[in-house]
C-alpha cells in the first residue's frame, strides 16, 4: 500500500512586499486508491500546496515534510519527484513551441521508466487513451499546449496522467473552465486511472461540481493555509449549501 504523507508543511513565497507565508502547517495523509478533495476559498493556499508538492522553485518550504512511502520528497528535484511517482495536473500548462505532443509523451515515458516503451504497445495505449478522452489523432503532431483551448489543455493533462501512471496525482483545479461535457470526459479519465493503477488523488477544486463525477473519500476544507475541517463526501454537500462563510469569520486571510 502506497502512502503520501504530508506533515506540518510550511511554505512561503517571495513577493515584492517581502516574504509571504502561505501554508501554515498542512497535515494530510493519502492512501493508495483514495481520493481526497481539497476545497476552499480563493487565496487559501490550495494551488501553493500543489506546486510545493511538485517542487516548483518559486515556493520555499520552510518546514515540514512530504513523504512518499517513507521517502522524503522535499529533498528531491522536480524530475526526481515525478520519477518517484508524483504527478501534478496543472491549472495553466505552459506552451512548449516546437515540441510535439507525441515526442513529449514518449520522452516523459522513457524518462519515468528508464527505457523507451515498446513502440507497438505504446501506440496502442496512446490511441486508446486519446479515443477515450475524445482527442483527435492530429493532436499528437501539435506542439505541446500551443494553441490548445482550455478544454484541450485539461484533456492533455489527463492523457498524461493515464499514460505516465503515477502513484499519486495532484489535480490543480482541473475542472475550472470546463463545460459539463468536457468535465465528464476528464472525470472519466481520472476514474479510469484510479481503477487501473490504484492511483491516489488529491483533487483541488473551487467548485464541488466535479465531485459528482469523481467521488471523494475525504473532503478537506482549506482556509488560510491549513486544513480547517475535514470529513466525508457529505462535507462537500454542506459547503455547497452554506459556502465558506463560517470558516472565514475570524480567520486570518491576507
Amino acid at each position: 500500500m502506497s502512502v503520501l504523507k504530508i506533515e506540518d508543511l510550511h511554505v512561503s513565497v517571495e513577493t515584492e512586499q517581502g516574504t509571504k507565508q502561505i501554508l501554515r502547517g498542512v497535515d494530510l495523509t493519502i492512501g493508495e486508491g483514495e481520493t481526497h478533495a481539497i476545497m476552499g476559498p480563493n487565496g487559501s493556499g490550495k494551488s501553493t500546496l500543489a506546486y510545493a508538492i511538485a517542487g516548483h522553485p518559486k515556493y520555499q518550504v520552510t518546514g515540514g515534510s512530504v513523504q512518499l512511502d517513507g521517502e522524503e520528497m522535499l529533498d528531491k528535484s522536480v524530475d526526481e519527484r515525478a520519477r518517484a511517482g508524483l504527478f501534478l495536473a496543472m491549472q495553466y500548462p505552459v506552451e512548449i513551441p516546437g515540441v510535439s505532443v507525441s515526442n513529449f509523451l514518449r520522452t516523459a515515458k522513457t524518462a519515468l521508466d528508464g527505457e523507451a516503451p515498446p513502440i507497438r504497445s505504446w501506440i496502442k495505449d496512446l490511441d486508446s487513451s486519446m479515443t477515450a478522452l475524445r482527442m483527435d489523432r492530429t493532436f499528437r503532431e501539435r506542439n505541446v499546449n500551443e494553441g490548445f483551448s482550455g478544454g484541450e489543455k485539461k484533456r492533455h493533462e489527463i492523457l498524461q496522467l493515464e499514460l505516465l501512471k503515477p502513484k499519486f496525482a495532484v489535480l490543480d483545479e482541473t475542472d475550472s473552465g470546463l463545460d459539463v461535457d468536457a468535465l465528464k470526459i476528464v472525470s472519466e479519465g481520472v476514474n479510469r486511472a484510479k481503477e487501473t493503477t490504484g492511483l491516489g488523488v488529491l483533487l483541488i477544486t473551487h467548485y464541488n461540481r466535479i465531485l459528482r463525477y469523481v467521488k471523494p473519500d475525504f473532503v478537506h476544507v482549506f482556509v488560510a493555509g491549513r486544513v480547517a475541517e475535514q470529513g466525508g463526501p457529505e462535507l462537500a454537500v454542506r459547503l455547497e449549501n452554506e459556502g465558506y462563510d463560517r470558516f472565514l469569520t475570524g480567520a486570518n486571510v491576507e
Binding site: D79, A108, L164
Partner: peptide, 13 residues
Amino acid sequence: EQLFYLQSRGISE
C-alpha cells in the same frame, strides 16, 4: 515554467 513543466513529467533538467 517550461523547464518545470517538463521536469514535473520526469524529464531531467
